[in-house]
Nucleic acid binder design. Structure first.
Lengths: 392, 392
DNA sequence: CTCTTATGTTCTACCATCAAACATAATTTT
DNA sequence: AAAATTATGTTTGATGGTAGAACATAAGAG
């Protein structure tokens, strides 16, 4: 299929673009800007800035507040992302269902968490639980809800079709239809991979405000090993939504068989079960392996060594291929980062082609069980920020 | 560094965008369109289409031709990409320097090729040879040259800084400054990695006209193994221009040492020298390994087996990570594709996570020694197509 | 030769931004 | 306390690009 050329644009597209630019600037700003600040930053006249801002304020996408510290000249009315506008983020993972409602400012206005073994429920029961959790969260909200998104530990294509979620036992499911309408949030605006959406919370400090690092690999240790590639501030999803499966990079072609059909996948070394077995601890105690190794537990020390080696082989290849030299560890891998960091950094330095010019940066993500839900909410709010005209 | 928000746009940006859209449509069209065709396709009035087209015709970016087959109604004047506008593409590889000049229609209007051992020359001598080759090609050209680009077997950052080119022995070099102005083409508009630019010739059928596959991995067997990732019609370059180094994906962590400092890189199995040694043939005869294996040469058959396995391990990981399931083989790997295809496809099917849902597609690129030069020219012409207003 | 048909052109209307003068609300100075 | 200063925000008309509709043009069809 040849790529169809987009349409030409008229003046209303111009206004839509500029509305988006203004809202982006308000969301991305470190300090609340005035109309005049926006005018200089965006290189338009104050007249135009006013016009655009007023439209956003009328629509509730931007709030006006009175200035705090006095300055010379007429006091500027400061602008903040609208607090009367929020989005619902959902996670359905093997051990929990979480619903969180975030405003355009990134403030949490509602949260419901259910700790359940979702793998034990059948598909219909699981979906019902997600719906129920979402409705409970929405009942706590009195402001305008612009939409909902769902994070799933599986491959999601086109932002709605769940191709497979091995741990949940779900597959071939149109999530938007399956979940159905959720009260004031309506149908799901999007469904996506858990790690991909979690990565959004690492990428952004708040909705529409990018953090310090626009490029990184996110590797999250959960039951398996999830991952995401973030390049130039965008999550790479690949052709069918399956990008970022760092858990199934081959560490050793003769290694142990993986449920994916291949052998020696990273997940067989860094997944929770595999890691616990190697270290001789219960799966729920994987976070303690680092401390135990330091305390002299030889089996844990060996497990950390093997884990480090497996990570360096897998991450080294990925860094070489995608040319991104920041790695963010999440989940139990993030919590083990202090124990891994030094040796892993050294080994990556040896395996990465450009390490001499661009050393590999290792960081731990401060992610929580609710991160994928926050990421899902971010995704919905991003839609608003990208096209505010649709919400006025 | 926080990502700075872009400027707002005025009406002249509107016109620039629409000029680009029209030129893109003309270049991408299967058959030369009329002004009316463009108007309907781009959803503007015929008045606007005319206005935009006229501007492009005046600037020489679009040519008008008389219709060939008679139809009912006033005959339409057909539009083609301007033939009076061309770009210079250059390659400096270990065994050759090639200069090619392509028009906006993709027609070759000049070519100069020098077969030399560029590795034997020092850096200054090599650069001089590139300049000389370029000037010779430009002398054959009588139409307007919009710029030049250079393909190099190495890592190029920011489109101009050569970080390292191990095979050439060049490093830490601002290529734009080092090459200097090239007659009517001026300074290099861009320098880039050879495989990345070669991939553009696979991606496009002609400048501005996308081929059938917007997503693929390009793996090219040369002295080493180059690669490129093409996602949604764009070559992924990564943080520092080093993306796509598929040659240094780890196939076996205990494999032979690689010059990159790691062990068991794909290049140690699929590079020309390594492959020739494994098969017991001269490096210049690697293309014959497939036939020899079929003819009963056991050493060649074993080499093909090992190569297939190494490729499946490396490509399997990459496909899992970047979520792209089309693989295009180039260089000697492309020429060996008939011998590899069947078994490699099978093994990839086992290693790739989503193979059941999106089977891996294997293809051979019809690339030639001049492909990187064509790709370089494409890159320059792409700039014109993306912002025609700069060339009017 | 006239009718039909589709292309390309001309004209006015609309609207978003620009430019510049104006109004406003504070601090600073007299 | 009143005037000057300063920066913000608003109003006004000008510019310019596209939309819409009528018009002109160049062929084939009858």
């Amino acid at each position: 299929m040849a790529v169809t050329t987009g349409s030409a644009v008229g003046q209303h597209t111009l206004r839509e673009t500029n509305l988006a630019t203004v809202l982006q600037a308000v969301c991305a700003a470190d300090a609340p800007p005035s109309r005049a600040d926006l005018a200089t930053q965006l290189m338009v006249t104050r007249a135009t800035a006013t016009r655009l801002v007023d439209e956003l304020v009328d629509g509730g996408l931007v709030d006006e507040i009175d200035p705090v510290e006095p300055r010379r000249g007429r006091p500027a009315k400061l602008l903040l992302p609208g607090a009367g506008l929020c989005a619902l983020g959902l996670v359905a993972d093997i051990d929990r269902v979480v619903a969180r409602v975030l405003t355009l400012r990134g403030e949490v206005v509602a949260e419901v968490r259910q700790d359940v073994d979702l793998g034990a429920l059948d598909q219909e029961g699981g979906l019902a639980l997600v719906r129920e959790t979402a409705e409970q969260a929405l009942e706590q909200v009195s402001v305008r809800v612009v939409g909902a998104a769902l994070a799933i530990p599986g491959v999601v294509a086109d932002g709605r079709t769940l191709v497979r979620a091995p741990n949940l036992g779900w597959s071939n499911l149109d999530l938007v239809d399956a979940i159905g309408p959720l009260g004031s949030a309506g149908h799901l605006a999007e469904a996506g991979n858990e790690a991909d959406l979690s990565a959004l919370t690492v990428l952004h400090d708040a909705p529409g405000r990018m953090g310090t690092w626009p490029d990184f690999l996110f590797v999250s240790g959960t039951v398996g090993v999830g991952g995401a590639i973030v390049s130039r501030g965008r999550v790479v999803v690949g052709e069918h939504g399956g990008a970022g499966e760092i858990g199934h990079v081959c560490v050793d072609p003769d290694g142990p068989a993986c449920r994916c059909g291949s052998r020696g996948c990273l997940e067989r070394y860094a997944g929770r079960e595999a890691l616990a077995r190697a270290a001789g601890v219960a799966p729920s105690d994987v976070d303690t392996i680092g401390d135990r190794a330091l305390a002299g537990d030889h089996r844990c020390a060996a497990a950390v060594r093997d884990l480090t080696r497996a990570l360096s082989v897998a991450l080294g290849s990925v860094v070489n291929v995608v040319g991104i030299s920041s790695v963010v560890l999440g989940g139990h891998l993030g919590r083990l980062e202090p124990a891994l960091s030094h040796t892993l950094g050294e080994q990556l330095g040896a395996r990465v082609l450009g390490a001499r010019w661009a050393p590999v940066q290792l960081r731990a993500a401060g992610d929580t069980p609710a991160s994928p839900a926050d990421g899902a909410a971010y995704r919905v709010l991003e839609n608003v920020i990208r096209q505010p005209s649709a919400w006025l």
